[in-house]
Nucleic acid binder design. Structure first.
Length: 556
RNA sequence: GGCCUCGUGGUGUAAUGGUAGCACUAAGGAUUCUGAUUCCUUCUGUCGGGGUUCGAAUCCCUGCGAGGCUACCA
C-alpha cells in the first residue's frame, strides 16, 4: 500500500542498534494473554512489532503470556492465533508459551533466593499492601524480609509442593521498599494458585508473576526489542533488574509506545466482555465490536486495518485517532477490490408503461468500472422495477439530479426513463411511480446525444434476490464512550440504534455470493456477506457507506 | 505531597540546531453511466514565559496542561 514516511522513534532506536550490531538479527514478539479476543489495539501492537521484524528481515515470535491459569483458556489461544494469522503477521515456527519456561523460571527464582535477592513473605495481601507505602510515602520492610536462605529455600519448595493455601505466602524480590517506583518495592515473583493451567495442568501450585516472567521470556527467546505499551514504562527498571541479576542468555531492551485509541471505541477487555456477556452485541465478533473478529465480520480487510494502524503512527503520547481515518482506509481498499452490484434498500416501485409485460431484457454491467478484466454480469430489466425512495421527489429542488414528474434519468447500465406520473396512498406516501423508457437509449446513451444528469440504480421487481441487510452506526454515541455523568457507566453511552435490519432487493447475481464476500452496492456503500447467511437467506453487513456529499449538503 | 513520561493545524504524524512537511477531516472547483472514485485548489499549527545561539519545534530554566504509577492481573 502506501509507502510514506515510516520513521518513528522506535525505528530510530533500531537503526542505531543495527549500526552498532550489523550482524545481529532483530527479534520482536507479540505477547497476548489468552484471556480474551484481540481488538484493534492489539492489531496495532502486532503491526508495530511484526512490521519491524519484517522490514528489518528479522524474526517475529508469537508468545502467549499464560502465567495466570485463573483467567486463561485455550479457546482464546485458538482465536488469537486465527486473528494474528488473518492480520498477516507470520510467526513461522516461532510460537511460544510463557508456560514453556516455568521450569527455567523456577530455577531462576532459586538463584535469586540463594543470592539473597528473594524471600518468602508470609504476610497477607492486606498487610503487604499497607507495607508497600503510597505514592508519596516509602514502604516498610516486611518482618519476613531477613529470613535465612535455607529457610526461604525450604518454604519455597513447600509452596511448590502445594503445602500452603492460596494467598498465604508469596516469593518476593528483595530490592528497595523505599524506592519511589512502587514496582521496585519488593515485587511479588511467585504466588500460590491451586488452579488448573490450560497447558501444564496440575503440575504447578505456584505461578510466576508477569514481571518475573516477561523479561526472562524475552531473554530466552533472544528478543532484541521488546515493544509494549506505555503503562509498562514503570516496570522497565524491574525488567532490567531481573536481566541484571539473573544468568539470562541475552539482554533484550524494552521500549514503550502509546496505545492506539479510536473515537467511539472501547478497548478494555473488561468492557468488551461486559458488552458480550450482557447481550448488548451478538458476540465477540459482532460487526460493531472493535475486535479483530468483529472487523472481519463487518467486512474490513486485514490490509485496511494494517493501513490504518500504519497511518495512525507510533508515538509516546496518548492520542485518539479519528474514526474517519479508519473509514477512509477501508473505503480506499474496497473501492479497489469490491465487485459492484445493485441493491435497493428502501424500495418504491416504478412501472415502465411502454415496456412489454412478462418480458425481460438483459443488460451487461462491469463487475468493476475501472477494471474490465474482472468481467461483466448480466442484470435483468422488467416492466416493474424498484428504485430507492430517496431517488424520487414529487417536487424536487433545482439541484436534484434524480427522478421527478417529467424528469428523465438513466437507469444504470440500462436505458433512460421519464417519469409520467405517480400514485400516493391515504397517508400521502408515494405508492408507485409511472414512467416510459426510450428504446433508443439502450446502452446508456441516445443517438441525439442528449444528456441526463442523473443515473440511478435499480432492481427488477420480479427478478431479484431478497436480502437481509444489517446497517450499523457507532456502538457508542459519544466520541469518548468513557465520558459519563455521575452515577453512569459506559453502558449508558450505548447507541440504541447501532444496528438496524432491513429487507432489501438485490440483483439476481447476488444469489452466487459466498460468506465473507464483499461488494459495493452502487451509490450506497460496501457490504459483506455475514456468516449467519443460509442458502435461502442472504445476510449482508454494511461495512461502510460511500461518501455522500449530496446527503451532507441536504442536511445543512 | 512523590516519581516517571509527554505537549507540532480540527485530528494523527514528520522535521533530531538550518525553508514547519505529509495524511485524514473540512471548504471550493474539474471530470464522471455511482452526487462514488480520480484530479486540482484553499483554510488552520510548534502550550506560555525566559535563556543559549548567526539561527530553536528541536538545547537549558521555569510555569501551565495531559497521561501513567499505590494487583498475590497482564
Amino acid at each position: 500500500m502506501t509507502e510514506e514516511t515510516s520513521s518513528n522513534f522506535i525505528r530510530d532506536i533500531i537503526d542505531e542498534y543495527k549500526a552498532a550490531n550489523p550482524n545481529q538479527e532483530i527479534v520482536t514478539r507479540f505477547p497476548p494473554e489468552p484471556n480474551g479476543y484481540l481488538h484493534i489495539g492489539h492489531a496495532f501492537a502486532i503491526q508495530v512489532s511484526y512490521g519491524i521484524a519484517r522490514d528489518y528481515n528479522g524474526q517475529f515470535n508469537l508468545r502467549f503470556d499464560d502465567t495466570n491459569p485463573a483467567k486463561e483458556e485455550s479457546e482464546y489461544v485458538d482465536a488469537i492465533k486465527e486473528d494474528v494469522k488473518w492480520l498477516g503477521a507470520d510467526w513461522g515456527d516461532n510460537l511460544f508459551f510463557a508456560s514453556d519456561y516455568f521450569d527455567q523460571l523456577y530455577e531462576w527464582a532459586l538463584h535469586l533466593i540463594r543470592e539473597g535477592l528473594a524471600y518468602v513473605d508470609d504476610q497477607s495481601p492486606e498487610e503487604m499492601r499497607k507495607g508497600r507505602g503510597s505514592l508519596i510515602e516509602p514502604g516498610e520492610n516486611s518482618p519476613f524480609r531477613d529470613r535465612k536462605v535455607e529457610e526461604n529455600l525450604d518454604l519455597f519448595q513447600r509452596m511448590k509442593d502445594g503445602e500452603f493455601d492460596e494467598g498465604s505466602r508469596v516469593l518476593r524480590a528483595k530490592i528497595d521498599m523505599g524506592n519511589p517506583n512502587l514496582n521496585l518495592r519488593d515485587p511479588v515473583l511467585y504466588r500460590i494458585l491451586h488452579a488448573n493451567h490450560h497447558r501444564t495442568g496440575d503440575k504447578w501450585k505456584i505461578y510466576p508473576s508477569y514481571d518475573f516472567t516477561h523479561g526472562q521470556s524475552d531473554a530466552i527467546e533472544g528478543i532484541t526489542h521488546s515493544l509494549c505499551s506505555l503503562e509498562f514504562e514503570f516496570h522497565r527498571p524491574l525488567y532490567n533488574w531481573f536481566l541484571k541479576n539473573l544468568p539470562v542468555p541475552s539482554k533484550p531492551r524494552q521500549i514503550e509506545f502509546a496505545r492506539l485509541n479510536v473515537e467511539h471505541i472501547v478497548t478494555s477487555k473488561r468492557k468488551l466482555l461486559q458488552l458480550v456477556s450482557e447481550g448488548h452485541v451478538r458476540g465477540w465478533d459482532d460487526p460493531r465490536m472493535p475486535t479483530v473478529s468483529g472487523f472481519r465480520r463487518r467486512g474490513y480487510t486485514p490490509e485496511s486495518l494494517n493501513e490504518f494502524c500504519h497511518r495512525a503512527g507510533v508515538a509516546k503520547r496518548e492520542r485518539v485517532n479519528e474514526y474517519a481515518l479508519l473509514e477512509y482506509c477501508i473505503r480506499q481498499d474496497l473501492e479497489e477490490r469490491a465487485y459492484r452490484r445493485m441493491a435497493v434498500l428502501n424500495p418504491v416501485k416504478v412501472i415502465i408503461e411502454n415496456f412489454p409485460e412478462n418480458d425481460t431484457e438483459y443488460f451487461d454491467g462491469p463487475n468493476h468500472p475501472a477494471k474490465p478484466e474482472l468481467g461483466m454480469r448480466s442484470v435483468p430489466l422488467t416492466r416493474e422495477i424498484y428504485i430507492e425512495r430517496e431517488d424520487f421527489m414529487e417536487d424536487p429542488p433545482k439541484k436534484f439530479f434524480r427522478l421527478g414528474p417529467g424528469r428523465e434519468v438513466r437507469l444504470r447500465y440500462a436505458c433512460y426513463i421519464t417519469c409520467t406520473g405517480f400514485k400516493k396512498d391515504e397517508e400521502g406516501e408515494i405508492q408507485e411511480i409511472h414512467a416510459t423508457f426510450d428504446p433508443e437509449s439502450r446502452g446508456g446513451s441516445t443517438p441525439d446525444g442528449r444528456k441526463v444528469k442523473g443515473t440511478i440504480h435499480w432492481v427488477s421487481a420480479t427478478e431479484n434476490r431478497p436480502l437481509e441487510v444489517r446497517n450499523y452506526e457507532q456502538l457508542f454515541t459519544k466520541t469518548n464512550p468513557e465520558d459519563v455523568e455521575e452515577g453512569q457507566t459506559f453502558i449508558d453511552n450505548l447507541n440504541q440504534n447501532s444496528e438496524s435490519i432491513i429487507t432489501a432487493f438485490g440483483e439476481p447475481e447476488l444469489g452466487k455470493a459466498t460468506i465473507g464476500e464483499r461488494f459495493q452496492f452502487e451509490r450506497k456503500g460496501y457490504y459483506a456477506v455475514d456468516p449467519d447467511t443460509q442458502s435461502d437467506q442472504l445476510i449482508l453487513n454494511c461495512t461502510v457507506g460511500l461518501r455522500d456529499s449530496w446527503g451532507k449538503k441536504q442536511k445543512k
